[in-house]
Amino acid sequence: MKVVAVCTDTPEQITQGRGKHGLEGTFLSDPDLAVTELFGLRNLNTAVRPPGVNGLPVPTTLMLDAEGVVRWKDQSADYMQRSDPDTVRAALDEHFQALQ
């Protein structure tokens, strides 16, 4: 299984963040929210946003099958709540067998 993450940071900021947090996987830079917009995940109702960015992504976790179809989705209506690692792990266990 691959892991792909999208965020508003520039490639340089992502590299710094990866070093700090020891993250693995593919990290994509979406500073103008073009990818976020294609997924329909732009949130304009934000109290804080980076300079020059109109809105922010709604933090979202998707599980895609080998055809690129969304099989599972976790999203919160409150930006202070994120996908709990245990929730994602349980979903992986439940859906991944079917996705292999």
């Binding site: 691959k2 900021q13 922010l56 933090p59 080998a66 991944f96």
Partner: peptide
């Protein structure tokens, strides 16, 4: 395409 993927959107660093 070809492999299942965990795809995540973050706000930023």
């Amino acid at each position: 395409i070809g492999t299942p993927t965990l795809f995540k959107f973050f706000r930023g660093h």
